[in-house]
Each structure stands twice: as structure tokens, then as C-alpha cells.
Simulated scan of single mutants.
Amino acid sequence: MKHALAVLLLTLPALCLAQGRPNPPCDRWPTNIAEGRLKSAGILGSIDYTKTEAVQLASEKIGKYEDGEQMWREVYHITFHEKNGNKVKVIAVNEGAGEFECSIGGVDVFIVSGHLPSRDTDRVFKQIE
């Protein structure tokens, strides 16, 4: 019985992962903003849009707007595939997605310059890669 309780307590955090917003998915808004900023900075060339990937890493409620609409902060790992074979990876933080509108707040874009994988194979990183 003690072991069953210990296992339950250890698995509880996995059951409490942040859930995304209940309404429209907002991966396109931060992806479009990131693309524009990367192209303006000369970091991103011609993109193969069929391979562009955006994986939501986190979502949290951060307050309410004046009209009472729930406000969310969303974090995405975005991979752009250039037509020349290069990949450009970024983390995009959408500060202020609403329940029904994705583009209410600004988007911070962080360029991922490298990845140090753990020795153990991690399912989450496999999904992102």
C-alpha cells in the first residue's frame, strides 16, 4: 500500500501539466511574428512552409483584460525549415493571448542556438526535435 501511494504521489505532477486555452489555437500568431522578425534580422531565408512546426510548451493564465476576458501567456518552440536544408529554431512567448483573440499582446522571440540533450532519451525533447 505504501508503494502504491508513493507511485501515486510521484505521478501527480505529470497529471497537473498546464493545459492550453480552450478556444482557437494560437500557434500561427507567434509563428508569423517570429518569421517576420527573423527575416528582418537576416537570420531566416526562404522557408519551406510545409515543414514549419510549432509545439506549445506552456500556457498559463496571467490575468484578465478590462472587459473581463481571460488573458494567457503561451510559450512555443518553433522550427523553421529553410529550402536550403537549414533549420532555425526559436522559442516564442505570446504575452497576452485572449480567449477568442490570439494577437492581443506582444510576442518575444528567442533564438535557440543549441541543444544539450540528456543521456536518457526524453519523450518531450523527441517531440520538439
Results as ranks from 00 to 15, higher is better:
51 K>T: 02
87 K>V: 05
63 G>H: 00
123 R>H: 13
54 A>P: 03
26 C>D: 06
22 P>D: 14
19 Q>M: 11
1 M>H: 14
11 T>H: 09
53 E>D: 11
54 A>N: 01
79 T>H: 10
99 E>V: 06
36 G>C: 06
46 S>P: 00
104 I>H: 11
45 G>D: 08
79 T>F: 09
118 S>M: 12
122 D>V: 15
33 I>P: 00
128 I>G: 09
2 K>T: 08
71 M>Y: 07
89 K>C: 13
95 E>D: 14
114 G>P: 02
64 K>V: 07
28 R>L: 14
92 A>P: 12
126 K>E: 15
9 L>C: 10
25 P>S: 15
28 R>H: 13
125 F>Y: 13
109 V>L: 04
43 I>P: 01
3 H>N: 14
31 T>W: 04
118 S>A: 15
96 G>I: 06
90 V>F: 02
34 A>T: 05
69 E>H: 03
74 E>M: 07
34 A>V: 01
28 R>M: 13
40 S>D: 15
72 W>A: 02
47 I>H: 05
41 A>T: 07
105 G>M: 00
87 K>W: 01
90 V>P: 02
3 H>A: 13
31 T>V: 07
14 A>C: 12
120 D>P: 01
72 W>S: 01
43 I>L: 13
114 G>E: 08
112 V>N: 08
35 E>N: 07
98 G>D: 05
41 A>M: 11
42 G>H: 04
112 V>I: 15
5 L>S: 09
17 L>P: 00
90 V>G: 04
88 V>Q: 10
5 L>C: 04
51 K>I: 00
98 G>F: 04
102 C>K: 01
99 E>H: 09
47 I>G: 03
13 P>G: 08
129 E>W: 09
124 V>D: 14
103 S>T: 00
50 T>H: 05
84 N>L: 05
26 C>E: 02
96 G>Y: 05
89 K>H: 10
104 I>P: 00
58 A>N: 15
115 H>A: 11
56 Q>I: 00
91 I>Q: 11
65 Y>C: 00
107 V>G: 08
122 D>M: 13
73 R>A: 00
60 E>L: 08
16 C>V: 07
64 K>M: 02
18 A>M: 07
10 L>W: 13
88 V>K: 15
106 G>Y: 09
26 C>I: 03
108 D>C: 03
104 I>R: 14
99 E>G: 10
120 D>E: 15
6 A>Q: 11
61 K>W: 05
51 K>W: 03
59 S>M: 07
44 L>Q: 02
90 V>I: 06
116 L>M: 12
53 E>P: 01
24 P>T: 10
72 W>V: 00
128 I>N: 08
55 V>C: 03
93 V>A: 13
5 L>T: 09
99 E>K: 08
2 K>C: 05
19 Q>G: 09
128 I>W: 10
110 F>W: 08
109 V>K: 02
61 K>L: 10
31 T>A: 15
81 H>S: 13
9 L>K: 09
66 E>T: 12
97 A>W: 00
20 G>I: 04
33 I>R: 10
71 M>A: 13
42 G>T: 09
109 V>F: 04
8 L>D: 06
118 S>E: 13
59 S>Y: 01
71 M>T: 07
50 T>G: 07
49 Y>Q: 08
97 A>P: 03
41 A>R: 14
106 G>N: 15
121 T>E: 14
